[in-house]
Structure formats: C-alpha cells, structure tokens
C-alpha cells in the first residue's frame, strides 16, 4: 500500500488522520468547558420546561395519558438536544477555524476532505451522545416515567443509523460559510431552525399545514423521531422499526455522498474566489 504522499491510505493511517480531528475537538472541548456547562444547563432547563407542559396540559383532561405525553415531549427535547449538538459541532467545521485563524493550515494538510469530515462527524456524534445522556439523567430527577416498555436494541439501532444522515445534513450546513463568508453561519442556523419546525420534535407532523408536511417527509429528523418514539413509547423491536431504519439508511446512502461532493465543490469555489480565509 502506498504512503500518504502516494495519495492512498492504509486503513490504520486513514483512521489515524480522522482521529486527529477527534483528538483536537476533544482538546478544544476541554479548554472551553465553561461553554459546555452553559449548553448543558440550557439543555436541562429546556428539556424540563418543555416536558412540564405535558403535565400542565394533562392536568386538566380526564383520563389523559400524562405519562405518554411527558415521554413524547421528553423524547422530542432530548432528540433535539442531540441533533443540535451534532449539527453545531460538524457545521462549525469552517466557521470555527476561520475564527481561530487556522483554516489555511488545516485545509492545506494532506488529508482527504472525507477523512477530515469523518473525524468531525465522529466527534460530533460522540459529543452529542454524551451531552444528551447527561441532560436525560438530570431531567429524570424531575419526572416519574416508566421506561418498562423501552426496546433498547431498536433505540440504539435508530440512533446509530439516523446519526449518519444527521452528519450529512450538518456537513451541508457547514459548507455555507465557504460560499457566503459573511452570512454563512447564520444560514447554517436557519437550516437547524427549519428542521425543528418540520420534523415533529414537539408535535406530530400531521398538525403542520399541508405544504409544510412536504418538508417533513424529506427531513431525516422526522424518521429519527418516529423511530425513537416507536422504540421508547410503543416498545417496538428491531423488526417493527425496520421500515424506519430502511428509510434512514436510504437517507444516509443518498446524503453522505451528496454532502461530500457539495463540500468539495464549495471548497473549490472558495479557493477560486479567494473566500477561504476571509472573515465576515
């Protein structure tokens, strides 16, 4: 197998290149622990505040399934906390390095862009899982929820398969600062906000106006939430969520190559127009 200079990689060297980005992000995460604390507190407050709405709504209704409603909203807020962490981590791939001033030194290194983005995605997913698990653990202190129905295997499968397409969405959002140095990061946030609206985070997508429901069908987050709720509320097993897993896998198969191609195209555009280093 040829060396890096030969343009090919052994499995070990490719993995090591990706892990360099995971290690760097971990170091940054440790150095900016204050921000992590802020986001954790925000996540807990957001989760508890929104889930308490279920208690309030259920209190005035005879025979209301308060526990089911609490779980529905709790899952929504936790999945959103996870999606936000992953989307933010990966979509900052360009913006953070522009802010630090390191972008040129990182992008001129002999690392294929897909390995760079793989490393960023692995960190984003691990970071999102850790933060969400902490929010979940703290939120449990506020609610009495029966998790006896949860199918853990189906839950893990949905999270893993969905994370691939979520990473692809984040890469697509992350390339915007390459095209629009002054407005790209705001546009990335609009992508996140749009997902919140159309994906059924706090309500069933059926309550959306018909024209908005079209967008919910093309959001992987919709199927992510469906799968998680099926596994946690309805106790569905792997076979039952196979259809949702299939759709999520299809999203991944289509969106991962698409996002990598789009990122490479955006990088070429930035190099042609001199927008790589420019700050907004």
């Amino acid at each position: 197998m040829a060396s890096i200079a030969g343009g090919m990689f052994t499995g070990n060297s490719a993995w090591a290149l990706s892990m360099a980005f995971v290690e760097r992000q971990t170091n940054l995460w440790k150095r900016y622990w204050g921000w992590e604390l802020v986001w954790l507190v925000y996540g807990v407050v957001n989760t508890v505040a929104i889930t308490l709405i279920a208690e309030q709504v259920g209190a005035g209704v005879v025979d209301a399934d308060i526990s089911g409603l609490v779980l529905f909203l709790l899952i929504g807020t936790l999945v959103w906390a996870y999606l936000s962490a992953v989307l933010e981590d990966i979509s900052l791939v360009i913006e953070w390095e522009r802010w630090e001033g390191t972008i040129e030194h990182t992008l001129m290194a002999p690392v294929p862009r897909w390995l760079h983005l793989l490393g960023m995605s692995v960190f984003g997913i691990l970071h999102g899982l850790v933060r969400t698990a902490l929010i979940f653990a703290i939120a449990l202190l506020f609610f009495d929820i029966d998790f006896g129905n949860v199918n853990l295997l189906a839950l893990v499968a949905v999270v893993l398969v969905a994370s691939v397409s979520v990473a692809a969405v984040a890469i697509l959002a992350g390339l915007l600062p390459l095209l629009y140095p002054e407005r790209g990061s705001q546009m990335s946030m609009m992508v996140q906000a749009s997902l919140l609206l159309v994906s059924g985070v706090y309500y069933e997508v059926e309550v959306l106006p018909a024209w908005l429901q079209v967008f919910s069908f093309i959001s992987p987050a919709t199927y992510f939430l469906d799968g998680i709720r099926a596994a946690m509320i309805d106790g569905q097993g792997l076979a039952d969520v196979a259809g949702t897993l299939g759709i999520l896998a299809l999203f991944g198969v289509i969106m991962v190559p698409m996002s990598l191609w789009a990122f490479n195209w955006a990088e070429s555009y930035a190099k042609r127009t001199g927008k790589l280093k420019r700050t907004g």
Binding site: S3, A16, E23, R24, T102, H105, V111
Partner: peptide, 29 residues
C-alpha cells in the same frame, strides 16, 4: 511535500503549543 509559515501564527489559542503541534503534525501522518 510542502509546509508553510504564514505571517500570522494561526493557532487554536486555548490549546497548548504541544496540543497544537500534535494536531498539525498528525494530519501530516
């Protein structure tokens, strides 16, 4: 085959010199 020193030092400012060097050399294999 190339590396570069730019007019601005350009580092992750909150990371140590060693952490920066570890990252920037690891991405060269």
């Amino acid at each position: 085959l190339i590396n570069r020193v730019s007019p601005d030092p350009s580092f992750f400012k909150n990371m140590s010199a060693l952490e920066n060097l570890l990252f920037f050399a690891r991405i060269y294999g």
